[in-house]
Amino acid sequence: MASTVTLTVNGTTVTREVEERTLLVHFLRDILHLTGTHIGCDTSQCGACTVHVDGRSVKSCTMLAVQADGSTVTTIEGLAAPDGTLHPMQAAFREHHGLQCGFCTPGMVMSAVDLVRANPTPSETEIREGLEGNICRCTGYHNIVKAVMAGAEAMNGGTLKAAAE
């Protein structure tokens, strides 16, 4: 069966006809061509597909597009300012080398932004726990945690701390 869904994605209202089994991640990637949201697993565990739905992080591979009907969705493409200035969390991942291959990064950044909005000054432990739903096969997480610490400070209005090296 097909259904009509209307969502606000990164500030733009979109209406599309979709098969009811369409996952939100496929709606974003295949229909809207927003391919920054990745698919890293088929078991709802890796978090590469994380987006914000009505301000909360969710795994877009584990939500139907029809469930998101009427919602406001933010993807990694919607984080930077319109003039291209990176969001402080994106800038922190770049500065602190919080990525290697980059596959997990969009999901990590979306989760980190969600975490810091809920807890503006997370401890290292809280960051590690807050990112339990995001798996990285490259970095060993250490620089991701440093990036989230620095990104949190910058999101709170501080200047972005330069990396140690």
């Binding site: 709802s44 978090g47 994380t50 909360r56 992080s57 969710v58 795994k59 584990t62 939500m63 989760s111 969600d114 975490l115 807050g130 339990e132 739903g133 995001n134």
Partner: peptide, 8 residues
């Protein structure tokens, strides 16, 4: 689970 699972 994790934050995203708890949100849903």
């Amino acid at each position: 689970g994790d934050r995203q699972v708890r949100h849903m």
